[in-house]
């Protein structure tokens, strides 16, 4: 199956950012009976966070963030990877499993329709709610004439 890097980046991003509970719920029925070889069991570590001076100048290190990674191989031979912010082994394992299965033509469409797109839609909705709450605090200040004495 021909998969572009952009496609894979898209679903990896959706899987990483999904709420764990929803991710597991949506994918349990497809994944739970599938055998996988665990190449690298879910593992918690750090990744260094970088920012830029003034937002766009030279980079500097801000600190680290926790991250969980995992690698599995599907029966179809595809390798699935995951790097997920935070410390969440079940999430990382499932994201890696789904990355592997999404590369297989037998599962790709089904998983896209039933896992990736619903997760993407949900993320969009919760972002919209956040935006609305924030937008209500948008303000127009009026400048008053200041006394000269």
């Amino acid at each position: 199956m021909n998969i572009t890097t952009e496609q894979r980046q898209y679903w990896i991003s959706v899987l990483a950012q999904a709420p764990t509970e929803t991710l597991l719920q949506l994918s349990d029925s497809v994944v739970s009976d599938m055998p996988f070889d665990v190449i690298r069991a879910p593992e918690i570590g750090l990744t260094q966070v970088r920012a830029r001076m003034g937002g766009k100048g030279d980079a500097f290190n801000m600190g680290d963030m926790t991250v969980t990674r995992c690698v599995v191989r599907s029966q179809g031979g595809s390798l699935g990877f995951s790097y997920v912010a935070g410390r969440n082994k079940p999430h990382a394992l499932r994201a890696a499993q789904l990355d592997a299965m999404l590369q297989l033509s037998d599962f790709h469409q089904h998983l896209t329709d039933n896992v990736i797109e619903p997760l993407k839609q949900q993320a969009g909705e919760s972002q919209q709610v956040k935006q609305q709450v924030t937008a209500a605090t948008k303000v127009d200040f009026f400048t008053l004439v200041r006394g000269e004495d």
Partner: peptide, 30 residues
């Protein structure tokens, strides 16, 4: 923190793409 391995380094964060929760300026009103 000292007990964990470092897996890698993030790409520098793009704060211009921030999903704004607060944003104020004391230099420009509008």
């Amino acid at each position: 923190k000292t007990t964990l391995n470092r897996f890698g380094i993030c790409e520098p964060i793009n704060t211009e793409g921030m999903q704004i929760e607060r944003r104020i300026s004391a230099t420009y009103k509008d």
